[in-house]
Nucleic acid binder design. Structure first.
Lengths: 406, 406
DNA sequence: TATGTTCGTAAGCTTTACTAACAAACATGA
DNA sequence: TCATGTTTGTTAGTAAAGCTTACGAACATA
C-alpha cells in the first residue's frame, strides 16, 4: 500500500489536501486580512472529519486503548468510535494489537494503536548556513535516516535543485509509504508555502511547496524554520500553549505559539525580530544599515567575533560578553513577553554559547523589566530537542496537516 | 417577547450560555494551558448553530438581503437558508421587509434584515478613574441612552454595588428585550469574567460576571477594557485583523487582535504593558518600584504633570515633552510590532495630548527601530470611536457571544 | 401570449451520531 | 459448579442536518 492509495481510499484526488479536517497548519487558517465572508459553512461531513481526528489524536497521544476507552475519553459513543476506527483501519492508520492482558470482569478489550510504522515523514531543514539537512521521521518524530547536501553557495533555482535532490534521496530511502514532506525554511513564508523572501537563498516569491508537490505528488508543507521549531517544542518538548522560541544562529528569528496556535502575522513575517533595535544607547552597525539591531548583539557570527577579540580572552571577559548579549535579548523580549503574557521562552542554538551566562542574564533582565507579580513564573530554558528541532517541527506540520494530530 | 423568551425558544436554560455556537468571546476559547482532551466532539447540531450564525452574520453586516442572496453568499442552499431563516424569525431576530422594489426577471425577492430594534445591549465601562459609565446600545452599536455613577473612592464590594446600580438604571431604561450585558473592566480578567486583579478598584478574584448574571438573569460578558476596545475598533472602526490598541489614561494598557481573535495570554494578562521598562537609560521611579516603566512616560497624570512644570511652558517645550513620550512608546512597541508583524497600531485616549507630536514621534520611532521593508506599511492612528470605545466594545462582546456576530 | 428567469418551498435522500438492545467473553460469589 | 454481573463491540432503528430534485408562483421580455 502506498501513500497515494491512502488518499484514494478516501476518494480524494488532491494530494496536497489534508486527509482530515483537523486544524491543519497550512490549510487551516485562511490568510484573513479583512474577511468578507466571515467563515465557511459547515457540513455534517466536516464534523465527521473532526471526530475522526479526535480519535486519531487520542490514539496518537495515549496509544494502546480500546474502542470503549476512546469512547469514554472523547465523549463519543462506542458505536460512533467503532465506525471511525473501522475507517482508520481501512486507511491503514490504525491497527488492532490483540486483547488486553489485564484481568478484569467483562469481555476483554481489543487494544488499538496508531500504526506508527505504517508511514514515514520526510523533514527538511533549510535554515542552516551552508547545509540543507533532511531526515526520515516516524509518526512519533523519531529519526530513522538522515541525509544532507552542501549548499556550496547556491542560491535561487540552484538552491531549489539542491532541495529537490535532498528530498529525492530521502524519498528513495523510505521503507514505508510517505505521509508527506515538511520543510522549515528561513525567511518569510506565506500560508501556501511560497517563500516570499529569504535573502540568503536569493528567494523572492519562490513557490517551494508547489514545486515539491508537483515533483513528488505528495502532500507538502513549507513554513518558517522558527515556526516549525516552536511546533516541535510544543509537541515533543513539552512547551506550553503560549510560548516563544528564539532561534539563534547565523541570524536571529522567533516562532510564536499563542493559545496553541502558531502566529503568522499580517504579512507572514511574525517572529522576524533580528532587525529590531535594542536599547537607547547605540550599538554596532548592522548589515541592514541600522544601529543596534538584535542580530548585532546576538547572532552567532557576531558573538564569536566578539569572543575572539584579544581583549576578551579571559573567562571573566568571555562571561561579560555573553552576559551583555543576554541582557540585550532580555531588553528586546520584555515588551513582547509583557504584551503577550507569555509563560515560556525557549532558546535554540549552540548550547555552549547560549546555555550559561547568556540565558541567565536574559531571564534576569526579563524579570527586572516586566511585572514580577505576573511574570515571576516565567520560564526560560534551552530547547530539549537539540539540532533536530526544525526537522521534527517539519514532521509536526505534516502530522497536523494530514492527520489533524499533534 | 422578552430576552429570556428568546432563550427559551431554543429550549435553553443557562442564561449565560450563547444562543449559538459562534466563536464566542468569553465562551469560545478554552483556557488551554496543556490540554489533555485536545478538542471536543462535534455533533450535527453544532454545525447547525454555526450555519445559523453564518446567516445571522451575513444579515448583520450586509442587511436587506433575500434568502436566495444569502444562499449565494454563504454557499448554503436556498432550502437550508430558508429553514435557518424560519428559525431566526421565530426567535424574533430577523424580520421580513417586503418585496424588493428593483425590477428584474423572476419572482420578486422577499427582503430580510436583522430586527435591529428588537433587542438592546447594556454596555458598561469601568475603566475611567472616577466614574463608571454605561449605555444602552442597539445591535449596530449605536448609543440610545446613557447613565453613569460617580465612584467617589469606592472599592471592593462597594464598587460592585455601584456597578449593579448602574446596570439596574440601564435595564430599567430599556424599551426592548435585553440581549445581554457587556462590561469592560480594568485589570486582569479571566475567560469566565472573574476580575483576577484590578488594584484601583480593590478587586482580587471578583466574580463580576456571575454577580451580574445572578442579579439580572441575563447573559453577561466581562472582559478587560482594552480588549473590549480593540474589538470595537475591529467591528466599528475598520481595524485590521492583526492590530494592537494602546489605551492611555490613568494607566497604560493594550488590547491585541491576532488573526481576528483577541489574545488573552497564558495568565489572562495579555496587553498589560504599563509596567514594562522602556529604554536603557533610567527614567522616573514608578509606583511599582521600578524605574522607567512605560506608565511613567506615558500615563495621562504623568504627562500632565510634566507639561505643567514651569520649564515646559513654551510650545516648543510642550512639544518636546510629548515627542519624548511618543518616542518611548515607539521604543516599547518596536519589539512587539516586529515580533507580531502587526499591520496597525491604534491609540485611544485624550486626543489633545496624543494626536500630534506624540503620535508622530511614535510612528517615526517604530519605523526607525523595525524592518522598514516589512513594516513600512505600518499604520498608526487614533481611534475613530472616541470616548465610547469601551462601551461599544462591550456591546461587541455580547453580540459575539450571543449571536456569533461581529 | 409564450418563454425564460428567479424565488421560495416541498419531498425525498444521504450522512452523521445517537439510543436501545444484544451476544460474547470474562470475573466473582453463592 | 453455576448463576450473576460486567464490559466489549456490534446490529438495528431514530433524529437531525444539509443536500438534490422538482414545482408553483410571480415577474420581465420577445
Amino acid at each position: 500500500m502506498t501513500a497515494s492509495e491512502v488518499q484514494r481510499s478516501s476518494s480524494r484526488t488532491d494530494p496536497s489536501a489534508p486527509l482530515t479536517t483537523g486544524q491543519g497548519f497550512a490549510h487551516g487558517k485562511a490568510p484573513q486580512t479583512r474577511v468578507l465572508r466571515p467563515s465557511a459553512k459547515v457540513l455534517p461531513e466536516h464534523a465527521r472529519g473532526h471526530n475522526r481526528s479526535l480519535v486519531l489524536q487520542t490514539l496518537y497521544r495515549d496509544g494502546r486503548r480500546s474502542r470503549a476507552d476512546i469512547a469514554r475519553q472523547t465523549g463519543l459513543t462506542r458505536v460512533t468510535v467503532s465506525a471511525l476506527v473501522a475507517d482508520l483501519i481501512a486507511d491503514g492508520l490504525v491497527v488492532e494489537l490483540g486483547q488486553r492482558e489485564e484481568t478484569r470482569p467483562g469481555k476483554p478489550a481489543t487494544l488499538l494503536d496508531l500504526d506508527r510504522a505504517a508511514f514515514v515523514i520526510v523533514g527538511l531543514d533549510l535554515s542552516e548556513h551552508a547545509t540543507f539537512s533532511g531526515a526520515l521521521l516516524d509518526l512519533d518524530g523519531a529519526i530513522s535516516a538522515r541525509a544532507e547536501v552542501q549548499l556550496a553557495g547556491s542560491t535561487g533555482d540552484d538552491a531549489v535543485q539542491k532541495v529537490l535532490a535532498l528530498a529525492q534521496q530521502l524519498v528513495e530511502l523510505a521503507t514505508a509509504p510517505i505521509l508527506g514532506i515538511g520543510v522549515g525554511s528561513p525567511g518569510v513564508v506565506d500560508l501556501g508555502g511560497v517563500v516570499l523572501s529569504a535573502p540568503n537563498l536569493g528567494w523572492n516569491g519562490m513557490p517551494l511547496q508547489s514545486i515539491l508537490a508537483d515533483r513528488f505528488g505528495l502532500p507538502v508543507v513549507v513554513a518558517n524554520d522558527a515556526n516549525a521549531a516552536i511546533l516541535a517544542e510544543h509537541s515533543f518538548g513539552g512547551a506550553e500553549s503560549d510560548a516563544m522560541l528564539i532561534k539563534i544562529g547565523h541570524g536571529v528569528g522567533a516562532g510564536l505559539l499563542l493559545g496553541g496556535t502558531p502566529l503568522f502575522g499580517s504579512r507572514f513575517a511574525a517572529g522576524e525580530i533580528g532587525h529590531v533595535v535594542v536599547g537607547t544607547d547605540g550599538g554596532a552597525v548592522c548589515a541592514c544599515g541600522k544601529r543596534g539591531c538584535l542580530e548585532t548583539w546576538l547572532s552567532i557570527p557576531n558573538l564569536i567575533e566578539r569572543l575572539e577579540r584579544p581583549e576578551n580572552a579571559g573567562d571573566a571577559d568571555r562571561d561579560a560578553v555573553l552576559r551583555e548579549a543576554g541582557q540585550r535579548l532580555g531588553i528586546a523580549l520584555a515588551p513582547v513577553v509583557g504584551a503577550l503574557d507569555l509563560g515560556e521562552v525557549i532558546l535554540s542554538g549552540p548550547t555552549e554559547l547560549l546555555d550559561g551566562p547568556l540565558a541567565k542574564a536574559t531571564v534576569e533582565t526579563l524579570r527586572q523589566r516586566t511585572m514580577a507579580e505576573f511574570h515571576g513564573s516565567l520560564t526560560l530554558r534551552m530547547t530539549t530537542l537539540g539540532q533536530d528541532i526544525v526537522l521534527r517541527g517539519a514532521a509536526v506540520m505534516v502530522l497536523s496537516g494530514q492527520l489533524g494530530v499533534s
